[in-house]
Simulated scan of single mutants.
Amino acid sequence: MAAYVIIVTQTVSDPALLNQYKEQAREHLRAQGISFTAGPVVAETLEGTAPHGAVVLKFGDLKQAQDWYRSDDYQKLLEMRLSATSSTAIIVEGP
């Protein structure tokens, strides 16, 4: 079963660092063969407070998504995102 990593950015405290993260994350994802399924623009907020942005990444299965998120390479990038934003990341399984 496929797994999706969903990252929702609520607020941005350091736009320059976030842009640096985005550039490096794009390169990292491309090198891993991972593409965006959706995002980063939120088309409509149906409930709650509108986020700054969100992305959805598709993986072959739960283990692949977990391994990617916990990889040393992504953990270096994650520090940048967490320093630049207030965000939430989750993994959901689906078709």
Rank of each mutant, 00 (worst) to 15 (best):
T9V: 15
Q24C: 00
V42D: 01
V5W: 10
G39K: 08
Q20K: 13
S83M: 07
A3E: 06
F59I: 06
I7M: 07
I7H: 04
A16N: 12
T49R: 14
I34Q: 01
R81F: 05
Q66D: 09
V41Y: 13
Q66N: 09
A65R: 07
G60V: 13
G60C: 08
V42W: 05
Q24Y: 07
D14M: 02
D72C: 07
L77Q: 01
A65G: 07
G60Y: 09
Y74H: 09
M80A: 04
V42P: 03
E23Y: 02
L46E: 12
L82P: 04
S13D: 07
L82I: 08
S35Q: 14
L82T: 12
P51F: 00
G33P: 00
R70L: 15
D61N: 15
A16M: 06
K58C: 13
S71H: 03
A50D: 14
Q66F: 03
A25H: 01
Q66V: 12
K63D: 14
V56Q: 11
E79F: 09
P40H: 05
V8H: 02
A38Q: 14
E23T: 11
I6K: 06
F59K: 00
G48Q: 02
A3W: 06
V56P: 10
S35E: 14
Q66K: 15
F36S: 10
A38L: 14
A38W: 09
A31Y: 05
S35P: 00
K76C: 08
N19T: 10
N19A: 15
A65N: 04
E47T: 10
L82W: 09
K58P: 04
E23M: 08
Q32V: 05
V12R: 02
P51H: 02
A38N: 11
I6A: 11
R81W: 02
G53F: 03
Q20Y: 08
F36M: 14
T9L: 09
V5F: 09
T37C: 07
E47L: 12
I7K: 04
G48F: 06
E23G: 05
E47Y: 10
L46D: 10
K63P: 01
T45R: 12
L29C: 01
A38M: 13
Y21S: 02
Q20D: 14
I34F: 03
S83K: 15
T37M: 13
R30C: 04
V42G: 03
G33T: 04
Y69S: 04
A43N: 14
Q20P: 00
A38I: 11
V8T: 15
G33Y: 01
F59W: 00
D67Q: 12
K76G: 06
R70P: 01
A31P: 00
P51V: 02
L46M: 15
E79P: 00
K22D: 08
Y74G: 04
Q64Y: 05
Q20I: 08
H52P: 00
A54L: 09
T37G: 10
S13R: 11
V55I: 15
A16C: 03
D72Q: 15
Y74T: 06
G60W: 08
E44N: 11
D14A: 05
D72K: 15
L46V: 15
A3K: 06
D72N: 13
Q66W: 07
K58S: 15
D72Y: 11
Q20W: 04
Q10H: 14
H28C: 12
Q24I: 08
G33V: 07
D67I: 06
D72V: 14
P15W: 05
Q75R: 11
V55C: 08
A65S: 06
E47D: 09
L29W: 07
I34Y: 01
R26M: 10
K58N: 13
A16W: 03
A54R: 04
